[in-house]
Each structure stands twice: as structure tokens, then as C-alpha cells.
Design a protein around this nucleic acid. Sequence first.
DNA 1: AACCGAACCAACCGCCGGGCG
DNA 2: CCGCCCGGCGGTTGGTTCGGT
Length: 211
Amino acid sequence: MVAMMGRGIAEQGWRKGPWTPEEDKLLSEYVSLNGEGRWSFVSRCSGLNRSGKSCRLRWVNYLRPGLKRGQITPLEEGIIIELHALWGNKWSTIAGHLPGRTDNEIKNYWRTHFKKKDKSSQKQEKRKALILKQEVQHQQQQIEAGEMKMVNTIDQVKMHEAEEMYFMYHNLEEQCSPVMTQDVASWADFVDEDYYGLWGGLWNLDDHPQG
DNA sequence: AACCGAACCAACCGCCGGGCG
DNA sequence: CCGCCCGGCGGTTGGTTCGGT
């Protein structure tokens, strides 16, 4: 059916540029009814005047359920660095190990944070991390001194994230060992010792059950 | 307040591999 | 076996936002 189309048919004047909310709605409805795949068919039958590629991209990078919006966490960053060291620019493969993140997102993140990272921006990053570290350490001290309860604090959110990432990374480690076991420590060093100090202060790895 | 460069992000482009006739 | 089409992937671009001066 799909194979029947193509060649002889002149390329249509597909719409390009940013997607409108109406287009998003059409695509979401179509995919939820008919499932992913057969994108060229989607583009013809959903009422969208978009190429199949464009539909697929929009769905995968933006509309697909379960996407995690927002900043990449230091732990995710660590995983990205580690996996990039292992596999290079295999963004989709790396994204496969970061649930909720897209290859495009990771690719963009890598480019802006590492590819053209110069000395000055590294200093800036380090300064930011240092400030964050100090903030959290201060809160940690308050908690330890009983001056503050760890409820609804930034710490809890981060600890929760850290736990999620731990289990994710633990699974990954199982798949990739022995290479990964050796590298788990190295990525932390690579990212930034201040970042690692931040997590180390909040969360003791030894406390987590192994498997 | 205005300007400028950096950072971020969505989207497009071109290539490649797999599936199918 | 060969050629064609489609989907997927990585690279790139262009617009917008943010932050510093």
C-alpha cells in the first residue's frame, strides 16, 4: 500500500516551520488512534499538510507521551558523557538509556555544553555548581542540626531525581559491564568534582541495595 | 534601557540501511 | 539480485531567550 506510493508522485508542497497547536492536536489524535509508524501515511491521511518525516520528528521529539521536559540533571549529564565516551555520537542509542529524553535533546545538550566548551565557560559552569553545592550543603547542615526538616526542600527533589538516576544507571551498568563498572567512577570525576561532591554529600551509594 | 554574544531548542536536510516487490 | 521507498539517524541551521555589560 505504502509501497505503491512515491516515485511517480510529485513531491507535494508540504508545510514547513513551527507546528501550530492545531497541527499538534491532529497528529496526537491520529497517532493515538492508529499508533506510531507509517509516517508517510499519517501525513496523507491525518489532514496534516506535513511530510512523514516532519510528523515523525514532531511526535518523537515533542508529542510522544512520557517525555521528560526540563533541564538535564547532573546525573543525566554524567550518563551522557559516559555513554558518549563508549559509543560516540550514537544519540538515539544514548537516548535509549535515558527514559524521557530524546536523541535531539541529548544531541543539542552535548553540542552546547561540551562540543564548543571553552575554558571560560567551564569556569562559569564550575562557579554555578559551586554556588549550588554551597546552597545544598548549607541546607544539609541545617537538617543535621535539626534546625530544618527535609520536607519540600530542593534537597528532596534532587534526592528523588538522584535515586531515579541511580536505578537507571544501575541497570545500565549491568548491561554494559565490565566496561561500565570501571567507568562509573570516572564520569563523576570528569563531570566536575564539585558536582560529585554535591551528590556525595546528599546521598550515600552504600546505603542503596545492590540488585 | 539597550545592545550583544552565548545558550537553548525546534525543525529541516541529507544520507543510509532495511524491507519489499 | 536489483531498484525503490520509507523510516531512522546524525548533522546543521535559524529563531528565540537569557545573561552580562
